[in-house]
Nucleic acid binder design. Structure first.
Length: 467
DNA sequence: ATGTAC
């Protein structure tokens, strides 16, 4: 991206019209011009409050850039957009802390890789062993991770450390198509494909000891991170509502800068229907990660008997949420779209569990396959409607990565470095090559320098089950 | 992201 088109606000934020791009000049320069074009389009949608923003890990997406944040006010004709949430609704990361230490893991590393690979359903169309009835699915849509806990997957203590305590309000199954429901019956408790993974990680650097203590992590400790979403269910809702919202925009005469930005006023039948369906998908994703956490725990217990596994936190990064924010000195209820962006509540936020009230919400930046990840903590004066980066962010398209890399070689190279990848798709491994992503170190550093969140601990991968 | 593509 050509920096001369942007006004430098700070060394880590750049402005163009009503858009703000967060990140240092090197990350912004490396971004596709499309990111600026897309976020500028978003900034012209009705009812936007403040600026449309991109996080340091942003890249080109469908309509909205991935790494995009935009808040809309229903009282000012604000809109909701399916492209502003993404197809994988409520995709996110569940992070588990364990009582295991680095040296204990080494002894059982190959074994846990095999057990996880056998037990965690992963890959395109890979169904799980769990079958739910249509009545159960209705309950899942309303109760999210709470349904999973009530059904024996995990325990109530987990829910305390899941965004919205495992269940969002406003879910309305009546607005979900039969096709979306049908696609989910066999997919509860499955990882999916693409950038999804289940990874065992070693805490190898602590940069904020106080927050690390609150998060219950220490150097050489072992964490498990599960990155996945709402599978075919959310995808189908996204597909269904792109059509419906485009029709609504046309009917209401909204002029859209890009047809991929199909949207409708929050206060319109279609807007309300989308939000009702999207909230069902959030709950499905939260239930999915709860089940997967339980399965992972069973695997860990089989290989490391007596291991303690607790939920550190569960963050979604593809959502639209109604939240209270202070803008220009006034309190407002806003619909905040975060597409490939993590919510990052700061210290003293009333929605945080007591344990994290003082240090702020755990913010997870999931790295690419074989590279590191970061855990950060939310700041009280976050400038982006309490949002932060969600991952390394792609630097290269999937098709280009596929041309450039060979999956098997990527997996072998990582094995040489002691990182065990288990996948059913070598094509996926090529698409997910570490170098097809931005440098997660730069993303985490810029996230901190832009005041979006502050770094707490660096994690390095040890075992990774890829979708 | 996706029972991977109108």
């Amino acid at each position: 991206m050509d920096l001369s088109r942007l006004a430098e606000l700070t060394p880590h934020s750049w402005k163009s019209g009503r858009s703000i791009l967060y990140g240092s000049s090197s990350l912004i320069e490396a971004m596709d011009e499309k990111v600026l074009e897309q976020i500028s389009n978003v900034s012209r949608l009705p009812g936007l409050v403040g600026a449309a923003m991109t996080m340091p890990d942003a890249h080109w997406g469908y309509g909205f850039p991935i790494g995009g944040v935009a808040a809309f006010d229903a009282e000012q004709g604000g809109i909701v957009s399916a492209g502003g949430v993404g197809f994988d609704i409520s995709c996110g990361i569940r992070c588990l802390r364990t009582s295991l230490k680095k040296e204990d893991l080494e002894k059982g590393k190959a074994r846990i890789a095999e057990v996880l690979f056998r037990k965690i359903p992963a890959g395109v169309g890979e169904g799980g062993r769990i079958r739910v009835s249509s009545e159960e699915l209705e309950t899942i849509m309303i109760s999210g991770a709470k349904w999973a806990v009530d059904s024996g997957y995990g325990n109530a203590a987990d829910l305390e450390y899941v965004e919205e305590r495992g269940r969002v309000c406003g879910a309305n199954p009546a607005f979900v198509s039969d096709l979306a429901k049908k696609r989910q019956f066999g997919e509860m408790g499955t990882l999916g494909s693409g950038n999804h993974y289940l990874e065992i990680q070693v805490v190898d650097r602590i940069s904020d000891p106080a927050a690390a203590k609150a998060f219950g992590i220490e150097k050489d400790g072992i964490l498990v991170s599960i990155h996945c979403g709402s599978r075919g269910f959310g995808h189908q809702i996204g597909t269904d509502y792109l059509v419906l919202l485009a029709r609504a925009a046309k009917r209401l005469g909204l002029s859209l800068p890009d047809r991929e930005l199909a949207c409708a006023p929050i206060r319109s039948p279609e807007g309300e229907q989308y939000l009702g369906a999207m909230n069902c998908a959030i709950n499905v994703a939260l239930a999915n990660r709860q089940i997967l956490s339980h399965l992972a725990k069973e695997c860990l217990d089989a290989v490391f008997p007596g291991i303690l596994v607790e939920t550190l936190f569960d963050v979604s990064h593809n959502t639209c949420k109604l939240e209270k924010h202070v803008h220009e000195g006034r309190e407002k209820m806003l619909h905040v779209h975060r597409k490939g962006a993590t919510r990052a509540f700061g210290p003293n936020h009333p929605d945080l569990p007591q344990r994290y009230r003082e240090c702020g919400q755990p913010v997870i930046i999931g790295g690419s396959m074989g590279t590191g990840s970061w855990i950060l903590a939310g700041n009280e004066d976050n400038p982006a409607f309490c949002s932060a980066s969600h991952g390394a962010g792609r630097a290269m398209s999937r098709s280009r990565a596929l041309r450039q890399y060979e999956g098997r070689k990527i997996v072998e190279d990582l094995a040489q470095r002691g990182i065990l990848i288990r996948t059913r798709s070598m094509r996926g491994a090529a698409e997910e090559a570490p170098d097809a992503y931005k440098d997660v170190e730069l993303v985490a550093e810029d996230t901190e320098r832009a005041n979006l969140a502050r770094r707490v601990a660096h994690l390095s991968p040890s075992v990774c089950i890829k979708g």
